[in-house]
Design a protein around this nucleic acid. Structure first.
Lengths: 222, 222
DNA sequence: CCGGATCCCCAGGGATACTG
DNA sequence: CAGTATCCCTGGGGATCCGG
């Protein structure tokens, strides 16, 4: 990307990660850990191979991503995040939290993967009853499976199927996500196709993180 | 911007603010408050007028920016941030904090404005002695002037000149910013041209907000 | 002079095909 | 599987021009 040419830390950050796809590459590596080229390509539907290849090289030069030729048995390159790349997590969290407000508009052609559903509860909600008993919740959305585990006051998520979950949420992504993130209520979720089986009282334990932080008064004005 | 076509809140956020210049427009409106077209253009050196005009329209459609034809006497349009736009502040803070690590590399051709210096202490440092006495610090960097006021445990900044400051920091931007943000020490700041007059003990009151280790030797675009 | 609109040029993104 | 090569085309950059 062409530099903005401004001595400002926001502009310089964007000089590095302002390119198209760059932050989404970081998202994939953050959510999935070290990835092969094809893993990244599959996790970024719509990206052209040459573009992904180019971005990875740029991110490597910038020090965000490291590439290691994996041990002989597999003989394939693995891309990982460096310390600098991992340090982008707060940026992605802030961006994803802000972007939640757009998740209620329906765009039927959007691609969807379980991991994009799974990170939302872990990042954007807290357990309202941290001392409550452990619980397991199965999420099903567009054939994608994810599991939420409430335990020790923390909200863990993983992909796949749970054995004997306490609660099962099944429906279109915006119904599942909207309900968990507090953007819509149970009734509305039902209207747009959510099916709920099991202990629906567990839903009360998902407390959305504050969405509009107290405005900083230290504005810079002439 | 072309949509990423992914049902993920990060991707949808980038659908809205991932365009070139978009986040910097929001930065200007956040730091300076409501602006006229020309104010924005001046605060974004390098932007083409047509591009700025287009971005503002897109941001207005997206609901981040509102345009109001100012009252008759001035008869000029004013651009402001909506609630949705203001809610990007945490994103810009996270991005700016991450970007600090690139501020030590010198790029002599970078544009520089006082407000980009002023927001850094307010956003990225806290007062290590919140009950300490009030203090006023004058910053001078490349003919740009800013003032930091330590008061009530808060760090306020504004542009311009202070009367009778307790401390004056004068030098190249990366010396002033590097010292305040804790990226370099006083000795190193002196080596790269910082002049310090007054109560240098006040410098100990700037505590950088917690952050992952910084690799200052990372050179991205020498 | 402010607030844009219009035009042209080209770097960078997107899709497909191809190779070690 | 892990990219590279190729072509096309959009969208950004820069200059100029226009109405109020």
């Amino acid at each position: 990307m062409r530099s903005y040419g401004q001595y400002c830390s926001i502009a310089r950050a964007l000089d590095v990660v302002g390119d198209r796809w760059a932050l989404l590459v970081v998202r994939e590596l953050l959510l999935k850990g070290p990835c092969r080229f094809t893993d990244l390509k599959n996790g970024l539907p719509g990206v052209a191979a040459n573009l992904l290849s180019g971005r990875l090289k740029e991110l490597e030069v910038a020090g965000l991503v490291t590439r290691e030729d994996a041990p002989p048995p597999v003989a394939t390159g693995l891309y990982s995040l460096s310390e600098t790349g991992l340090a982008l997590e707060p940026v992605l969290k802030a961006l994803g939290l802000w972007g939640l407000r757009f998740m209620t508009v329906e765009r039927p052609d959007d691609a969807f993967q379980a991991q994009w559903l799974a990170y939302a509860p872990a990042w954007f909600t807290t357990d309202a009853d941290p001392d409550g008993p452990p619980a397991v919740i199965q999420l099903v959305a567009s054939d994608e499976l994810a599991v939420i585990e409430l335990r020790d006051g923390q909200i863990h998520t993983r992909l796949g199927r749970a054995t004997d979950p306490d609660l099962v949420l099944d429906g279109p992504p915006r119904a599942v996500l909207g309900l968990l993130s507090g953007m819509i209520d149970l009734e509305r979720a039902g209207q747009i196709g959510l099916s709920v089986r099991g202990r629906r009282d567990l839903l009360a334990r998902f407390r959305p993180v504050p969405r509009d932080p107290v405005r900083c008064e230290d504005e810079v004005r002439p």
